[in-house]
Nucleic acid binder design. Sequence first.
DNA 1: CTATCACTTCAAGTATACTTGAAGTCAATA
DNA 2: TATTGACTTCAAGTATACTTGAAGTGATAG
Lengths: 139, 139
Amino acid sequence: MKTYTIQEVSQMFHLPASTLRYYEEMGILTNIDRTPGGQRIYTEGHINRLKTICCFKGAGMSISKLRLFFEYETDEPGHIDEILALLKEQKREVTGQIEKMQKDLKHVERKLHYYTDRKNAMEAGEPLPQWADYRGKEF
Amino acid sequence: MKTYTIQEVSQMFHLPASTLRYYEEMGILTNIDRTPGGQRIYTEGHINRLKTICCFKGAGMSISKLRLFFEYETDEPGHIDEILALLKEQKREVTGQIEKMQKDLKHVERKLHYYTDRKNAMEAGEPLPQWADYRGKEF
DNA sequence: CTATCACTTCAAGTATACTTGAAGTCAATA
DNA sequence: TATTGACTTCAAGTATACTTGAAGTGATAG
């Protein structure tokens, strides 16, 4: 079975090794075997777990909630409903965030168009309306 | 001109009043007039500024970068290029995040389907494959 | 074999973004 | 006018997620 050193995992996920040790300490990336010399040996299972961690963290899930989720997963038969509830909540969360981001993108694009026009006008030597401060201008 | 108390703004944005004072202290929501008694008076300009703050923060922009952006906006003519650069970066950021979130959503949905099937199988009394620990199971 | 670099643990430090508490003042209502 | 609740400042505290440093051990290239 393919295994990985901490450095390989670190590079794979663009995470410092200290963060991987921290995740282990926090109980969200556990059961890591060691070489006789004590160095960590990561497996495909850890890689997949890390993918899940990055995915869930991306939507703002805290480490303690991640731990809870993985604890439920470990004892699946007794916690299938909690797992499903957490996953549904996560789905709502991510869906909501996508919608918000799409609105945010429009906001940014609106500002981008505004300032692009202002720049063009400036370069054409046109007079530009000015404001005393942002309170009259912000949009 | 319509104005707002700190409480009204607080409710409008689901932000505690302390956070609004904090944003003022951090220099991202400034130029707030006061009543003769010293209470803050927010205007439409502040509401719009807060919309921008929430939008940019949503994509992970830090308070110090927000301050930088608003400082550039305040002195627009000398900083139009920096403004455009920051906005373009922010657009890339948000676009990237949306793409990541869409992948993350698929990941969550995959897990949701998996556990929904497991639950159905469990309830139908079917034997389920088990794993010693998550290293063989995580997906 | 030795140098060098990566790895180890453990404790303490840092960054960011608020949040809370104390002590006092302002505003609205009965 | 008295009381109540919302507001004020300022300093200190908290939560989260790492990050760093020290001191030592393991792995590898010459």
